[in-house]
Design a protein around this nucleic acid. Structure first.
Lengths: 190, 190, 190, 190
DNA sequence: CCCTAATCGAGACGGTACGTCCAGTCTTAAA
DNA sequence: TTTAAGACTGGACGTACCGTCTCGATTAGGG
């Protein structure tokens, strides 16, 4: 058994809450470790003791749901086209809000030197376990559809599309999600 | 006519060269204006006189071809599928080199707060005027193919895919480009 | 000729003034470099650019007279006993003020790892060029007196005495200076 | 009677030993409470429980003889001049060693905000109970000598001289102690 | 041919944030 | 109840860059 005081859960929570607050108050890039410490009412060293970098805090806040409370699970009704369409619809609608798009943009930017963040973002968006790719594979195995692309490729195209929206290109047109997914799955839309 | 000394072309070039050198020596984020000035043998003020920010320098270096010497024009043989496939093949192969992927990642990251850079990147990659979207439209007009998606959507899906590769996901499998483009255009691959 | 902007005299002065102000406002040991920078309205780096340590600032403030405006020259009337007595009287009276004693104490403390400061303190107190030692030697040469001790020893005993007062021992009794000097010079007091 | 564990003598000793070790390994000013705790294999709180400050530890280490094992009692042969000379000789020789001078310097520096340390230092050096002042007084009472100065003044001059040596001024010349003491006592040296 | 204005390399300036180190307090589990 | 261990808030340290400003030198028109 380790002696000495245990990690303070209060501080941990305060840090995660603080970074979320600050990011949406002043934008991802303008958030400093010092500001986090002040906002959280925590010593700077307490942050450095547990996190090697700002990205690591973000990763944890992301995993914890502090940063993006919503979650985007892919429904499982058995109809892959409908499921994925519905999910993509929600995601694109979410990104219609400029604040959300900006946040996701920053997170993707952070993903470049922190794969961990990329992973957490994908997770939050519902693109990990069970991923879209797996859902497509199931549909294919069930003989529901025979798309020209592999599940992974489709997965990647869709995620890429989401990223493009976050990076600021093109507004969302309702119903678009369904047509996109249909085309990618090689099915005629209703 | 303005009196006084004119802008020094030597300095301008030195700055662009310096930023290219430094970016690949120490990574985009670690490049500071001061380092650029030193490397270029130029006063800091000379940089600030002509560029409002690091991003602006990058944008010019990009436009000038200093940063990415290669260019990726979409061929124009009349066969849209072949043209776009060939082009995508080259781009994905280029991103197979980790250095290139990292560079593009940084540039995309910079695009978030500098649309100018986003534009230049798209330009460099051959995704602007004439864009993939236009090529698809031409083919559609010529009756060569009738894809389920609009040119813009296809354009976006493809760019999104490119971005995903740059962000570090999935290695490139030769031949993949052709299958992807074929599927997106709604054509059976050869 | 060095190019670039010259050192700012305004900043230099502000720094010296600030350290003097702060030392007497909150005591030598509690003065931080950051406080000096703030008080002087100067960037921290401007201090570090010119001074390796707090002690170096103190040394300059001392040399400049910013820290201790008074000076204690040894008079030169030809009568060594009277001259030195008068001088010591002034010094001991000065140290009667507790603030002054505390300041000198701190300075002596700083002298331990900064001989420069020791020198400047001696200078300020009038114990350097022409030093008490030299005055004694002159008197001896002129046949005015033949003390049992060398000028240097007397000098050292006197400085030691001054230090003891600064370190907090014994209050000053008027007239004491004369008796002390007389005894050290081997002369009967008047 | 207090219940619970009593103060651990082992810890107390370890702390005193540790501070002595660290002072001569890295210099007085660089010794931190944390380093003492680590070196002593003791919790920080154990130190803070018993000592209000680093100076208090030093004071105890001094009183205990852990810091300066040597002691310098003034001999009592009845011949005040010889006794004091012999004692001063030993002290000055001790300070000839640079390490010792540096240590004493630091201790004097610490005395400025901790009179307790000043007292302990004086004690260690043999300048307290029976002090040099008292010895002079006894000699005067016995009619052995009639110095021009009071015992206290002599005491102070001598301590001041010792301090000056510790502060780094002047090397020791053998035999000097005798001449100095003789002069201060108003006696012709042998 | 000088004058005047703009540019240049150099570098000091006031600031902000960094990541580290300690001070002094508080918490835990063991003895 | 004390101990060793160690986490906690707080705050100064010395460094790195930011973007601005100030030098003296250089380089062109325009008078």
């Amino acid at each position: 058994m380790p002696r000495g005081a245990a990690r303070s859960e209060a501080s941990r929570t305060a840090i995660l809450t603080a970074i979320a607050t600050l990011i949406d108050r002043m934008g991802f890039d303008n958030v400093t470790i010092e500001a986090i410490a002040t906002e959280a009412g925590v010593g700077k060293q307490t942050i450095y003791r547990w996190y090697p970098s700002k990205n690591a805090i973000v990763a944890e806040a992301l995993a914890e749901g502090t940063l993006v409370p919503e979650s985007f699970p892919v429904p499982e009704t058995g109809d892959a086209l409908a499921d994925i369409s519905a999910w993509l619809e929600r995601v694109l609608a979410f990104l219609g809000d400029e604040t959300h798009a900006a946040l996701l943009g920053s997170l993707l930017s952070a993903s470049i030197d922190s794969p961990e963040i990329g992973l957490r973002v994908a997770e939050r968006l519902g693109m990990a376990s069970p991923t879209v790719a797996e859902r497509v594979q199931q549909a294919r195995d069930a003989g529901q559809l025979r798309p020209a692309l592999t599940g992974e490729q489709i997965d990647q195209l869709i995620f890429g599309l989401v990223v493009m929206r976050a990076l600021g290109r093109a507004p969302y047109v309702p119903g678009e999600a369904h047509r996109l997914v249909a085309a990618l799955l090689g099915v005629a839309p209703d």
